[in-house]
Design a protein around this nucleic acid. Sequence first.
DNA 1: ATGAAAAGCGAATCATCGCTCATATTCTGT
DNA 2: ACAGAATATGAGCGATGATTCGCTTTTCAT
Lengths: 208, 208
Amino acid sequence: MARKSLTKPRKMASQKRSRATVDALVEATARILVKEGFDKASTNRIAEAAGVSVGSLYQYFPTKESLVAAVIERHQQEIMQTVRGELTGILAQPVEQAIRMLVTVAIKAHRVDPKLHRVVAEQIPRVGELEKLATFNRENYTLFMAYLAQHRDELRVEDLELASFVCVTTIEALTHNAVLHHSKMMSDEKMRALVDEASRLIIGYLKG
Amino acid sequence: MARKSLTKPRKMASQKRSRATVDALVEATARILVKEGFDKASTNRIAEAAGVSVGSLYQYFPTKESLVAAVIERHQQEIMQTVRGELTGILAQPVEQAIRMLVTVAIKAHRVDPKLHRVVAEQIPRVGELEKLATFNRENYTLFMAYLAQHRDELRVEDLELASFVCVTTIEALTHNAVLHHSKMMSDEKMRALVDEASRLIIGYLKG
DNA sequence: ATGAAAAGCGAATCATCGCTCATATTCTGT
DNA sequence: ACAGAATATGAGCGATGATTCGCTTTTCAT
């Protein structure tokens, strides 16, 4: 199957060597992004760091943008894996416990490679393909709304959608800022205090 | 005062023609950023849109970065002008009123050129000089903490700094997301509902 | 073992863009 | 009216960096 001018999307890796190459590229991109910053992350430099040639890079990623997108996607997958692992347990909990655990897991999620998270949030311009990347995942939003629906009678909320928006946005912002911009102030005591405060904030809101 | 090889920082504009040029450049940059996006905003294109030559651009802005910084600074000034105007009145209000007015003014602030606000928040990489640009102004944070201190006896907060962090971060995130990502859902009724919810959230938190 | 497909290579191409500089025009004080 | 300072011009330099392509090496199925 010869590919003549397949300029748009490159083909999948099928042999295991090539899968290793793809992994190395994504890994190297993440490393360069963190250590050198977005504007130093040229495709040639990335290929070199990955120990492969630029040509190989373009075998699997049609554009630099798509490579960066792959890094972001992988990072989001890792975060969602962390979250999903705890989520089933959380959803069975009563409101007070659930919210507190949710805040805790949100902090945990932001501590999965926080350096990369910061680069993604602050240095990578959302242009072109990256434009549609949601800052916080829609999945969280939907799941949270489902939980609210289940506990509706215990709660003082009329508009579930609005309440979900408020809660998810708030938890995301608080944990994001705490972990990524105040990590020194937030070592141990303070972080527990933050969990307390954030939980009180949300629970107070939900239970009136 | 001849300038021989003043490569680093360019001189100030003193005559009114040059001040007009500077204004046109900043204005054109903002326009291009909004209409074409960050990656299309080359210095040549900006100069053309401003109706001046690239050379003139570099008379006043040593780097492209500094020009973008000027745009951001101007935008932040405009926002802070809006906020400061209402702020003195707000600080005299009792807590319930004050918070509600604060949320309202935060929305208003985000409605000052929201398109530009979005480009600044999402498309411009915080690299180099732009790195130190705070997402939300430190000024808000300080002022809010002062207000909390004044009303400390009415409130159920021990750590003023933490409480300020929580409130300012939350209000900023809610209004930012509402205005910039849900503007259609947020036309008239919904927006009033959001003010209600956000106010209830914060007031409940502060007053226990 | 062998031929074809898959994977890898990297020098070279090509376009973009930030920025400079030699020159031209306009302003301002006298 | 004139000189010098301030301002404006824009072709082009130089660097960077994304992407390509002709070729080699490795893998796999038979």
